[in-house]
Design a protein around this nucleic acid. Structure first.
Lengths: 254, 254
DNA sequence: GGTTGTGAAACGATTCACAGCT
DNA sequence: AGCTGTGAATCGTTTCACAACC
């Protein structure tokens, strides 16, 4: 292979590691809380504790964004909030559609965190005619037939799929064909999408299974005889196995 | 992770990498689908495609479990389903409680995938007296005052928190004090737990923010045309940027 | 022939540790 | 004196590529 994987711009660092990107929302949340308490500056140590990571990692993460701190002092809270928001693209408005208004879809529509941070629920879509026109979270559900029109009229580029697994790929295809390029998938299915479309998935039962694995191991260790508990000093440890990413279920629309 | 130093039994490799553990549920789901279609064997290539990962990774993952395949043939579907289930601890029954029966909690209670795979919703708990006794998904909601008793009476070791952020840490503390050692947290808050307790978190708005980051970047590249690669037709490589991990096929309970 | 299982190489992320600035 | 920013070391994960085996 002469060409190889062309991906490094080589010039300047627009290359923020994926692991860092995934933590930026965490920092943003901690910073927003500080901002609301009118805290003016914060050290990497304090902010890291609030976000549940360690301080070296946080400083490294921020170093990819630029030099936004002051040595000997810390970071300006407001300024950092702005910089991270901008980096994440949250200074603009993102209209999203939710397809599949069952239990989960309704829960998502009602979820405050959605609206709070640059995201706006532009439409709720379901295939069940009985739901059409019914307001959920104050937004009337529209019929799936309108999907393409809704996407285009609202300039939607992010779609949330909370349909049953069986419908997910089909819905996904239609979203993509209509112009959606980012999908958050709650249906327990592998979605196949064209190049250039991002999919993130959230699956409740996978998270539970991962927990069960560790739980089982704990039980095993305990039984096999080393101390009932590995004997730990600290009551609170920073790295208490926060999960990487999330998960949630899919629910029947009926 | 959470557990203390004690981790290498020194004997044999009970050290399955965390990344592998996180993928086992994906394989399991793909295998279950194959099993339902009565497919007897499957190659790493086919199974990897169904699970949305690449085959080398899948083989490496399986190699940590042991040698369960047959060279030149592939893997026996039923046998693998059993082995992975066992490894994940799904051959036993895991009673779970859901605390916080709002929109999301109700959606979780109704989620079929919960019951389908070794997990049993032992109780629904909420602090609102108006909900007490009201059935959700056929299970009557119990009042938060009963939490400790419920945990102990049912031998619950896994708890799901779907309360508002403000209540999450307090609920978490009570769950842990009552004996819960694995927590799935849907509240947008960092939970602090003692050593030996696993927490996995699921945060819908974080997922959206990560999508927004990539979305913004796409828009930027498109508009500015700051082409790091003036040529090169395709934008992305092989993987269409799935989420934290691959994706999965459907099991769909009843 | 086909496919697994696995060392070794490549890659990416985390942690260390300290120079450099306030 | 205190804290950031970052090279360098370390650790974990993915990918390669092929020997072992059916």
């Amino acid at each position: 292979m002469a060409t190889g994987r062309t991906h490094r711009p080589a010039t300047r660092s627009r290359g923020i590691p994926e692991a860092t990107v995934a933590r930026l929302p965490l920092y943003l949340r901690a910073l927003t809380a500080l901002s609301e308490r009118s805290v003016p500056t914060v050290s990497s140590e304090e902010l890291a504790a609030a976000a549940g990571v360690n301080s070296a990692k946080l400083r490294k993460d921020f170093s990819y964004l630029g030099s936004y701190g002051t040595r000997g002092v810390g970071y300006d809270v407001e300024y950092l909030v702005y910089q991270i928001s901008r980096e994440l693209g949250l200074t603009q408005d993102w209209p999203v559609v939710i397809v599949g208004i069952g239990n989960l879809g309704a829960a998502l529509a009602n979820y405050g965190g959605f609206a709070s941070r640059g995201f706006r629920v532009a439409a709720l879509i379901d295939a069940d005619p009985a739901l059409t026109g019914k307001p959920v979270a104050g937004i009337p559900v529209q019929h799936a037939d309108e999907l393409e029109k809704i996407i285009r009229d609202n300039g939607v580029s992010i779609g949330v799929i909370s349909t049953p697994a069986g419908a997910a790929q089909q819905v996904c295809d239609r979203l993509v064909a209509a112009g959606v390029t980012s999908i958050l998938n709650f249906a327990p299915t592998v979605l196949t999408v064209p190049d250039g479309v991002d999919v993130r998935k959230v699956d409740l039962s996978i998270e539970l299974q991962i927990l069960a694995f560790h739980e089982q191991r704990k039980a095993g260790e305990e039984a096999v005889g080393k101390g009932p508990l590995p004997q730990t000093a600290a009551g609170r440890d920073e790295s208490a196995d926060q999960g990487p990413d999330g998960d949630v279920p899919a629910v029947m629309p009926a």
